[in-house]
Amino acid sequence: MKAHYFKIDQFEVPFRVQVDELPYFYNKYHYHPQNQLTYIEKGTGTYLIGNKIGRFAEGDMFVLGSHLPHVFMSDDKYFTDQQLGVRSVNVFFTPDFFSDKILFIEELSAFKDFISLTKAGLQFNSFSKKEILSDLPQKEGFSRIVCFLEIIESLIASKNKALAIDVLYKMEEPNPKMEKLYLFTFENFKSKISLSEVADLAGYSENAFCKFFKKNTGQTYVNFLNEVRISHALSLLQDPLKSITDVAYESGFQNMSNFNRQFFKKTNINPKTYQLKLHSL
């Protein structure tokens, strides 16, 4: 998927708050020099952060480092029924939010360590301080800064966080071949895709392509493709009436045994059990 450079207008204050209330989230793989904090207030879908694919849901928080390419792709239902709508609270702030001299103060050393971790992206499931985030857009001046620091403090103290990507994937400039491969995969994963097809697309032999993709992403193309398909399957399983067979084939799998195997590998549970648990909550 093409990583677009996303220009964020310069701002004089230490950070900028942006509330997005739209039919669906901005759906282009992009990056920018500012750090980004995104709270998903309404909406579900699949994220691609660097080389990592996963699901996001209401209540999730993401903190992304400078130049880390990402996209939050809304589920299909948001494109077919735009009355559903999505909402997120976003904070953009520069990596040098605090000066180096201030960061040497012992009380602020945790902030410096936290910013270092965000280079690879952090995900917080079911962020507990959502009321602070709800207040942030209405705050002004010094009160807004205090509110922002309270959010950062709660994230630093949170035990419920995970590294969003497996290998550091920072983009100063787009990689045209990887962009083309991502775009092709997300547009065609529901159909059969052969290794020779994507190798030709990138201009490599199959063997050379496998080395190229592994070097750039830390994983094989087949594994990446399976993750895209399983992420789509997870969204389809939100429908309690959807059959497992339909979910498998609509996600691009050609046989049930491979679908079940890949689903278990990703979630450590079989599809039917996942669907039943999801709708028994």
Rank of each mutant, 00 (worst) to 15 (best):
A157V: 11
A157Q: 11
A157L: 07
S158H: 04
S158W: 00
N160V: 12
N160P: 13
K161W: 07
K161V: 08
K161L: 07
L163P: 15
L163W: 14
L163V: 15
L163H: 15
I165Q: 14
I165M: 00
L168A: 09
L168P: 14
Y169M: 02
Y169V: 01
K170S: 14
M171E: 13
P174D: 06
P176K: 08
P176N: 06
M178Q: 06
M178F: 02
K180P: 02
K180E: 12
K180F: 01
L181N: 03
L181R: 02
T185P: 04
F186R: 01
F186A: 03
F186W: 05
F186T: 13
F186K: 04
E187Y: 01
E187K: 01
E187Q: 11
N188F: 08
N188V: 12
F189M: 09
S191G: 14
S191Q: 15
S194P: 09
S194G: 05
S196T: 14
E197L: 09
E197H: 11
V198K: 09
A199E: 10
D200Y: 09
D200R: 07
L201E: 12
A202V: 11
G203K: 10
Y204R: 04
S205L: 05
E206A: 06
E206M: 07
E206V: 15
E206Y: 06
A208E: 14
F209M: 07
F212E: 13
F212L: 08
F213K: 04
K215V: 02
N216F: 06
N216Y: 06
N216I: 08
G218A: 04
G218F: 03
Q219C: 00
Q219H: 02
T220Y: 06
Y221W: 08
Y221T: 05
Y221C: 10
N223F: 05
N223Y: 12
F224K: 00
L225S: 03
L225M: 07
N226Y: 13
R229D: 07
S231H: 02
A233V: 05
L236D: 08
L236I: 12
L237V: 06
L237P: 14
L237S: 09
D239I: 03
L241Q: 15
L241E: 15
K242Q: 14
K242S: 09
K242D: 03
K242R: 04
I244L: 05
T245K: 10
D246V: 13
D246F: 01
D246P: 08
V247F: 02
E250R: 08
S251T: 11
S251L: 03
G252M: 04
G252T: 06
F253L: 12
Q254N: 10
N255P: 12
N255Q: 06
N255H: 13
S257M: 11
S257R: 13
N258A: 11
